[in-house]
Computed example of a mutant assay.
Amino acid sequence: MKTRRRSPSRSKNSGLPPFLRALRFGALAALSLGLASCAIAPNSRYPAKSDIKPHAGVASAHRLPIHGVDISKWQGKVDWAALRQAGTKFAFIKATEGGDHVDNRFLENWWGAKNAGVPRGAYHFVYWCRPAHEQAVWFKKNVPQDPEALPPVLDVEWNGESVNCPKKVPREQALSMINVLLREMEAHTGKRPIIYTDITFHKDILEGEFNDYPYWIRSVAAEPQERYADRRWTFWQFTTTGRVPGVSGDIDRNTFYGTENQWRMFVASACDPRDHKRLQPLGICRDISNGVQTANIDE
């Protein structure tokens, strides 16, 4: 690269003594680094984590206290100890897709997270060209039963990029398939599943449906309430370009809606604390042991 030649005019610093020029340079450098870090993660509680393409529309996510990630084979080898040290409070790990695909790093990640002390749950990606009962059997075959795991996740979105099955199915068919999978996943794990979805699929299929289930929604450019009609969320995927120690390259970052107390209640009961009083008598939520709830449910 050709180097530009400096103008013969004197710079503003040229008349300063060397030590003053050095102090001025250091101050400017520190200011630049501070501004850069604010741009990466505004008001972040986890400065070790960042986002290479931060969006102002989701800045509020950084201020919430409970953050986590979702993981698949595309993240490569994960250093789970480093991930936990960075403040990661949960991980959702891809397990199965359709009725014949297992993520080839699922078990490695599943046990790696447990050994590092990172609460984790498994997720199944729905394939709309495969009967729901076959997908349920596949999930049960490949996901270990672990009473200490987080609730499983049912990932429902259109897959227009699929080579074999890019089509959409009618709304009633989609709802029927989802219902079967939710029921069977709950029977296998003993926990009510979380529904993961995106803006388009929610509008096409899920508005007004499955309101007794916790939702994990994707919104990477705006607050969830700006993109989802009348949908209360429990988890929010707010960026796909996050960076976290322990993972090379981009990773999805997520946040839980509530406080640290509410998170403890969620982990202990496998239910959104806002639903516990209503659903626990139905046998859906586990009893909360003494000492878990340390404050009012709204705190």
Score class of each variant (00 low, 15 high):
residue 1 M to G: 14
residue 5 R to T: 15
residue 8 P to N: 04
residue 27 A to L: 15
residue 38 C to Y: 07
residue 40 I to P: 02
residue 45 R to S: 06
residue 45 R to E: 02
residue 45 R to F: 00
residue 47 P to Q: 13
residue 47 P to F: 08
residue 48 A to E: 11
residue 49 K to A: 12
residue 52 I to P: 07
residue 55 H to E: 01
residue 65 P to A: 05
residue 67 H to E: 03
residue 73 K to M: 07
residue 77 K to G: 06
residue 77 K to V: 15
residue 88 T to V: 13
residue 92 F to D: 01
residue 104 N to M: 06
residue 105 R to H: 12
residue 105 R to V: 11
residue 107 L to I: 12
residue 119 P to Q: 02
residue 131 P to C: 03
residue 132 A to E: 00
residue 138 W to A: 04
residue 143 V to I: 02
residue 144 P to K: 00
residue 147 P to I: 07
residue 157 E to D: 04
residue 165 C to H: 04
residue 167 K to A: 10
residue 168 K to R: 14
residue 171 R to N: 03
residue 179 N to E: 15
residue 182 L to I: 12
residue 184 E to T: 03
residue 185 M to N: 03
residue 191 K to A: 04
residue 191 K to N: 01
residue 203 K to M: 07
residue 212 D to M: 08
residue 229 A to E: 12
residue 235 F to N: 03
residue 237 Q to L: 08
residue 239 T to F: 02
residue 239 T to Y: 01
residue 244 V to T: 13
residue 249 G to C: 04
residue 251 I to E: 00
residue 252 D to R: 01
residue 253 R to Q: 15
residue 254 N to H: 00
residue 265 M to C: 11
residue 268 A to N: 13
residue 271 C to G: 11
residue 274 R to F: 12
residue 276 H to C: 06
residue 276 H to T: 05
residue 277 K to R: 08
residue 280 Q to N: 12
residue 280 Q to G: 10
residue 288 I to A: 03
residue 291 G to A: 05
residue 294 T to F: 07
residue 295 A to Q: 10
residue 298 D to H: 01
